[in-house]
Amino acid sequence: DRYEFNINGVHFTIDDAEEELIKLIEELLKRGARAEEIEEVIRRWER
């Protein structure tokens, strides 16, 4: 599934997002994580 979200006006799209990654990102968003922090999480996840 495609997952899309915005952080401070920056648009992100993840194709074939796994449910666990989506939950992790949503938790980070609730905590007010910065875009750079979430980008790093996504990079690590994709390795």
Rank of each mutant, 00 (worst) to 15 (best):
Asn8Leu: 05
Arg44Ser: 15
Glu36Gly: 08
Leu29Gln: 04
Phe12Asp: 00
His11Tyr: 13
Ile42Phe: 05
Glu19Ser: 09
Glu40Lys: 07
Glu40Arg: 06
Ile38Pro: 00
Asp16Phe: 13
Asp1Thr: 14
Glu37Ile: 06
Glu27Leu: 15
Arg2Leu: 06
Glu37Asn: 04
Asp1Gly: 15
Leu29Glu: 02
Phe5Leu: 06
Lys30Asn: 09
Asp15Gln: 09
Gly9Phe: 03
Glu39Pro: 01
Thr13Gln: 09
Gly32Pro: 04
Gly32Arg: 04
Glu26Arg: 12
Glu46Trp: 06
Arg2Lys: 10
Leu29Val: 09
Phe5Tyr: 05
Ile7Arg: 02
Ala17Glu: 04
Leu24Gly: 04
Ala35Met: 12
Asp1Phe: 10
Lys30Tyr: 15
Thr13Trp: 12
Arg34Pro: 13
Glu18Tyr: 04
Val41Glu: 11
Ile42Thr: 02
Val41Arg: 05
Leu24Phe: 08
Arg2Gln: 07
Glu46Thr: 10
His11Trp: 15
Asp15Lys: 08
Glu36Ser: 09
Asp16Pro: 13
Glu18His: 10
Glu26Met: 14
Ile22Lys: 05
Glu27Ser: 14
Ile42His: 01
Tyr3Ala: 01
Tyr3Leu: 04
Asp15His: 12
Asn8Tyr: 03
Glu19Arg: 05
Asp16Cys: 13
Asp1Cys: 15
Tyr3Phe: 11
Ile7Phe: 04
Phe5Asn: 01
Arg31Trp: 12
Glu46Cys: 07
Ala17Pro: 14
Leu29Asn: 03
Asn6Pro: 01
Asp16Lys: 14
Ala17Val: 06
Arg31Lys: 13
Ala35Ile: 14
Leu21Asn: 00
Ile22Met: 05
Ala35Asp: 03
Phe5Val: 06
Asn8Asp: 14
Lys23Ser: 11
Glu19Val: 11
Ala17Asn: 05
Glu46Lys: 12
Phe12Lys: 01
Glu26Pro: 00
Glu27Val: 15
Arg2Glu: 03
Arg2Pro: 10
Ala33Leu: 04
Val10Ser: 06
Phe12Gly: 01
Arg2Gly: 07
Glu36Val: 08
Val10Glu: 06
Thr13His: 09
Ile22Tyr: 04
Glu26Ile: 14
Phe5Lys: 01
Leu28Tyr: 12
Arg34Leu: 11
Thr13Ala: 13
Glu27Asp: 11
Gly9Val: 02
Glu19Trp: 11
Asp1Leu: 15
Ala33Glu: 04
Glu40Phe: 10
Asp1Val: 15
Ile42Pro: 00
Glu18Leu: 04
Asn8Val: 03
Arg43Pro: 00
Leu21Asp: 00
Ala17Trp: 05
Arg47Gly: 11
Arg43Asn: 08
Thr13Glu: 07
Leu29Arg: 07
Glu20Ser: 08
Arg34Ser: 14
Leu28Trp: 05
Phe12Thr: 02
Asn6Glu: 14
Gly9Arg: 00
Lys23Ala: 13
Arg31Met: 13
Ile38Gln: 00
Glu37Gln: 09
Phe5Pro: 01
Ile22Trp: 05
Asp15Arg: 03
Tyr3Val: 03
Lys30Leu: 14
Leu29His: 03
Glu18Cys: 06
Lys23Met: 12
Ile25Lys: 00
Leu29Ile: 13
Ala35Arg: 08
Lys30Ser: 11
Glu40His: 06
Glu40Ser: 09
Leu24Glu: 14
Arg44Asp: 09
Tyr3Lys: 03
Arg43Glu: 05
Arg34Ile: 12
Glu39Thr: 12
Ile25Tyr: 00
Leu24Arg: 09
Asn6Thr: 15
Glu4Met: 03
Arg47Cys: 07
Leu28Met: 13
Leu24Lys: 11
Leu29Gly: 03
Glu18Pro: 15
Ala17Tyr: 04
Phe12Asn: 00
Glu40Cys: 08
Ile42Trp: 04
Thr13Gly: 04
Leu28Gly: 06
Ile38Asp: 00
Lys30Glu: 09
Tyr3His: 04
Arg47Lys: 11
His11Cys: 04
Glu18Ser: 14
His11Phe: 12
Ile38His: 00
Asp15Cys: 07
Ala17Asp: 04
Leu28Gln: 07
Ile25Gly: 00
Ala35Lys: 11
Gly9Thr: 03
Arg47Phe: 15
Lys30Pro: 02
Leu21Met: 06
Arg47Ile: 12
Ile7Ala: 08
Arg43Gln: 10
Glu4Asp: 06
Trp45Met: 02
Arg43Ala: 12
Glu37Val: 07
Asp16Met: 11
Phe5Gly: 02
Val41Asn: 04
Arg44Tyr: 14
Glu36Lys: 09
Trp45Phe: 09
Glu18Thr: 12
Glu19Pro: 15
Val41Ala: 12
Ile42Ser: 01
Glu4Tyr: 03
Asn8Met: 06
Val10Trp: 07
Glu39Ser: 11
Gly9Cys: 02
Glu4Leu: 02
Asp16Tyr: 13
Ala35Cys: 08
Glu4Thr: 05
Glu46Tyr: 15
Val10Pro: 00
Arg47Leu: 15
Glu39Cys: 07
Leu21Gly: 00
Glu37Arg: 04
Ile42Gly: 00
Tyr3Ser: 01
Leu28Pro: 00
Glu20Gln: 07
Asp16Gly: 15
Arg31Tyr: 15
Lys23Trp: 12
Lys30Val: 11
Asp1Asn: 15
